[in-house]
């Protein structure tokens, strides 16, 4: 993704954030005690609602929980579940568990990177539709290699099945 569209996307997200800063995020802070112990759970709630963790949201979490901003940043970058970049509406997760690896998952990653013109864990497609991630194991080892798009599982994926999958996800 080039830098121009990237700024556009983040501007759009920032606008979304601004409009619900006083709505959605407010509720989150009432769900858990306002202390450091709740940090991970709160970041998870923020990400569930916004799909990523914008810097403005991290500022707010630090303020609300009275935790140093650096510590919030530390936790947000440490855990794989958190994304500090905007993600597409649909996140394509290619499983790279051992079972998937021995059955050729890496080919799928390379192929998806090429087809979507996208790097793993870096931004989203120009239309904002997809982003691409790899996961260590989704626990669907028996149907390796597996791909998960949001909630949809694709089992025993072969490179020639990718077109069909992308088409289906593009439409729905």
């Amino acid at each position: 993704m080039n830098s121009e569209t990237k700024t556009k996307a983040s501007k759009k997200k920032a606008a979304v954030l601004k409009s619900d800063t006083n709505g959605k995020l407010d509720q989150i802070f009432d769900l858990y005690p306002r202390e450091e112990d709740s940090l991970i759970m709160i970041l998870q709630e923020v990400q569930d609602r916004l799909n990523w963790l914008p810097p403005e949201a991290l500022d707010r979490v630090a303020d609300e929980l009275n935790v140093p901003r650096a510590r919030v940043q530390g936790v947000a970058t440490f855990y794989r579940a958190f994304s500090l970049e905007p993600r597409g509406e649909k996140v394509i997760k290619v499983c790279l568990g051992t079972a998937c690896h021995v059955r050729g998952a890496q080919i799928l990653v390379d192929e998806l990177e090429r087809r979507l013109d996208l790097k793993v864990s870096h931004g989203c497609t120009k239309d904002g539709r997809f982003s691409l991630e790899t996961v260590n194991c989704v626990g669907a080892c028996a149907m390796a290699p597996a791909i998960v798009v949001n909630e949809n599982y694709y089992a025993n994926v072969k490179p020639d099945k990718l077109d069909k999958m992308l088409k289906k996800e593009q439409q729905s």
């Binding site: 450091e36 112990d37 759970m41 998870q44 936790v75 855990y79 958190f82």
Partner: peptide
């Protein structure tokens, strides 16, 4: 229930407990 943050090292006991405390695992 505490949802993990997606870090393999948190399967290690002392890291898991740090994570439960809301810290880096």
């Amino acid at each position: 229930i505490s949802r993990g943050g997606g870090a393999f090292v948190c399967g290690e006991s002392s890291a898991l407990m740090r994570s439960l405390e809301g810290k880096v695992g």
